[in-house]
Amino acid sequence: MSAALLVQALRQPASVAALDGAGWNALIAAARAERLIGTLALRIGDGPVPEPVRRIWADARREAERETRQALWEADRAAAALADWDGPVVLLKGTAYAAAGLTAGEGRFIGDLDILVPRGAMADVEQRLIAAGWEWVKQDPYDDAYYRQWMHELPPLIHRDRDRMIDVHHTILPLTARQKPDADAMLAAAVPITGKLYILSPEDRVCHAAAHMLADGDLAGGLRNLWDIHCLLADADLRKLDARARRHGIAPHVRQAQRLADALYGTGKARLTLWDRIVLRRLLARDGWGGESRKLLRSAFYIRSHWLRMPPLMLARHLLTKWRKGHRPG
């Protein structure tokens, strides 16, 4: 299993010295599939690696630098667009880690710009972003209404010139999820990076990453999310973290994230539950070519992700609407 190789290489960079050609190929394919190639390249470095891998590392580092540059520019543009709105722009996920210079941001792939603003300010923020050139991606009225009624974010907006997406969040989990994190408390505890741009407190960063990974979604990209958590935990005060997680109603998720991060990237000493072991099996479901393995388990997690998001009746209605519109599960 190549995902296991990837985890091993991140945990113990010296372990790559034992790899042969096939081993390197499997490691690189898994790292690309999990979008951890930049992280891996920085973590392992040029020392113990053969020449062809050095070239791949150089590509990955250059790509990561570009990611960072582009992400910071988008954050800067968003800050400029919201300059006359009287509130902090809290950066989330990759952009936040890069802007604050955190270990979790080193070599990280950064997709969209994610920001968190108070729910009451959504209309103001939306209007200013649109004035500055962001446009709707989802033209479908059902999708649009669905986002506005049930999601924790605006429907995604894309910038017409730069082709980059922004997700404007007012909390960190869909409103349909069972857990109700305290977004106001998160905003209140956020710490400034620049005058306008903020990042969540160290404990809230872990809460957000754990909620995102374990209370929402199907664990796609889970190894990367868990690497974030592993890095973020180093800056968190564990006692405060526990209190904070309870306040947000996601203590079990945060504790599980800690155990999983320890199992894959840490000491490996944490005691695992049966459910932890199932999640780990799903996280490591990659073959030696970077392809998806354990298809049934993957499907089960995909179905679960919908279950987590919606009560059964609502889910049935949602699936029916989507089916009528011609959507079929991948």
Binding site: D20, P52, R55
Partner: peptide, 16 residues
């Protein structure tokens, strides 16, 4: 054979 490749290509069945 066995060389470290710059890229992997996969030709997979669209479904099992």
């Amino acid at each position: 054979p066995g060389a470290i490749a710059d890229f992997s290509v996969r030709l997979e069945p669209v479904s099992p």
